[in-house]
Write a protein that binds this DNA or RNA. Structure first.
Lengths: 340, 340
DNA sequence: ATTGGCACTCGGGGACTTCGAGTGCCAAGA
DNA sequence: TCTTGGCACTCGAAGTCCCCGAGTGCCAAT
């Protein structure tokens, strides 16, 4: 039971610190929470918690502040996801319903999430490799130039121009278009490479070079990671934070946010759309984010998420609330995408 | 001549303040510049300049700092655009040459500009209304659903799905595609509305509703301002600024940067690709940018620019340098786009 | 019109003090 | 063995005081 109370104390410290943004002392703790013990007892618990590395004091005689490890324990064992209120859910739904296309869905989602959480929001575009091909369109731009347009079942559209080694006739374009669609329409993009290897073999020698060029462009568009895109919103919320949250400057964080590769890696661990993942302080791989926490999850079909979304803020954040918001938004987006 | 010297003094003040970030006094002024007069004389000039509102002192008995009006005079009459060094030009060119498509050009441009100027860079996508239609593609997704893809001569691709009131056959799609392209391919988007009005009249009654739906979607895609896009880079450079630059917090600036509508308005005045436009402090319409300056210009064909690009930073910025960088980058981008 | 001289201003920074929230430890009590 | 009240101690925040010096405005002399 003494052990249980120690955890209660840790929970209370995290909650108080998150809401007041001030190191919390033993006295104010017993005042704000009904722990049923005296400050002296709490002090003993605090000393123990500090020994174990869950809390720390900014300077000798100040209150305690949770460490990354403390937040981790809090998230894992001392809190649960805070569901959103019905009005909030209503607002999310009606806001997302208005979207006209995929771009719009993503844009609205990221703004919504930033607004809702008052943090920086990050949304990854539905991953290409995990979607299916709806259609490939070839547009004849000039004799030696085609525009390849790839449409996925999530509504994502990617395009790329191809410079052909030789001239190509309209008829040949139509033929190739039919072949390509016949081969991969309806299939996951991940399988595209395998399905397309023998396409050049089936056409006559004359145009084979052109076909190879087109196929390799299609594959590039599909495979190349550079096409993974993320969208941000709420950067201004970083300026709201106190110097306590980000020691010195928010610059490294802003820099990390500009390197979209870094952001994409945040969603690397996203494997299902059910669990909400939390990465706290130095748990983050990127050094610039060692003072920040990321709450993320996948969205899309529950078994096979399309991509990730999440929020980023100081380690001192309302984890249960953020997790609730992230989960709720992810669910609604998944729903919307499934319908559209 | 006394008047001339006063302007020299103002120029010296601006230059010193920009480089040192400290209010500049009469003594250090004569030390750093060879004005050929004594500090006392400079003091008289300063007093006059202050009376006229070109400079001000942060507090009694500190050096002087240029006002917005002072920077304005400096930009208009006391400085000239600083050309980039040949190596810099070389770097710009080779960096931009590597771009594979329009998206890539824009992305590279904005990063380059941020890097070069150490400020926040903003690049607007080539405006739709000012480009010409290269091709319109209609993709048959389902019986009652089409994907409309619009390709401009700048390489920009816009797409939108249309839900049709009734079913449509493949043949009708092909027919409509041909009609649309026949009508507006090669024409400026701005003329599209006029050119398309009578298209529905030419088809038989049966499919007229469908045609109307498609045409109106095309027009929406063309006309709607929401498709005007901007891209940002270098936000982290704002965190480099001192409290002197942005009194209190950079938050309002970050907020303004997130409202892309605000950014687009920055380029509203861009009418040609020759002159570089400077907007200083409270000259900015948006209140959140009253502590910032914007250096912008148009890019594209010199007579009819496609869109704008520029940088944003504290009013205390190196205007000649920024103008040089912005102008150079705009020229190269225009060149690249003209070739591609 | 320019300049040297001079008295004046005022913010920044260092030294010093006070205040109080918070701590650790201990001995007594349950 | 755990809890608790008591107590001395620590140390940062904030206030006060003071000095220094960069910078100013003004004036009389050139």
């Amino acid at each position: 039971m003494a052990d249980d109370r120690r955890l209660d104390v840790l929970r209370a410290i995290v909650e108080d610190y998150v809401s007041t943004n001030e190191p919390v002392g033993s006295k104010s703790l017993v005042e704000r929470h009904s722990l049923g013990v005296s400050p002296a007892t709490v002090r003993n618990d605090m000393a123990a918690l500090e020994d174990e590395g869950y809390i720390t004091q900014p300077h000798t005689s100040a209150g305690r502040v949770p460490t990354d490890k403390g937040y981790r324990l809090f998230v894992d064992r001392l809190s649960s996801v805070k569901p959103l209120s019905p009005p909030e859910r209503k607002a999310i739904e009606s806001f997302l319903r208005g979207a006209v296309d995929l771009d719009d869905v993503v844009r609205r989602t990221v703004r919504l999430l930033a607004q809702l959480t008052q943090q920086v929001a990050v949304v990854q575009y539905p991953s290409l490799t995990r979607s299916r091909v709806r259609h490939i369109e070839l547009v004849h731009i000039s004799d030696t130039r085609l525009l390849v347009v790839l449409i996925t079942d999530t509504g994502r559209v990617e395009q790329r121009t191809v410079d052909l080694p030789g001239a190509i006739a309209e008829d040949d374009v139509a033929d190739l278009r039919a072949r390509l669609n016949n081969r991969i329409a309806g299939h996951p993009l991940a399988d595209a490479a395998a399905l397309l290897t023998d396409v050049p073999d089936a056409v006559d020698l004359r145009s084979r070079a052109n076909v190879v060029a087109v196929v390799s462009t299609v594959l590039e568009t599909l495979v190349e990671q550079r096409e993974e895109r993320v969208v941000l919103a709420g950067t201004a919320n970083l300026a709201r934070t106190t110097p306590l949250d980000f020691p010195g400057t928010i610059r490294p964080v802003l820099e990390a946010l500009e390197e979209h590769v870094v952001l994409l890696r945040l969603f690397g661990e996203v494997t299902d759309a059910q669990t909400v993942h939390v990465s706290i302080g130095e748990e983050n791989v990127h050094e610039g984010l060692w003072t920040a926490s990321v709450v993320s999850t996948g969205y899309g079909a529950t078994d096979q998420p399309l991509a990730g979304l999440g929020v980023l803020g100081p380690t001192r954040m309302d984890y249960p609330g953020m997790m609730g918001a992230v989960r709720a938004v992810a669910r609604y987006v998944g729903q919307i995408l499934a319908e559209g």
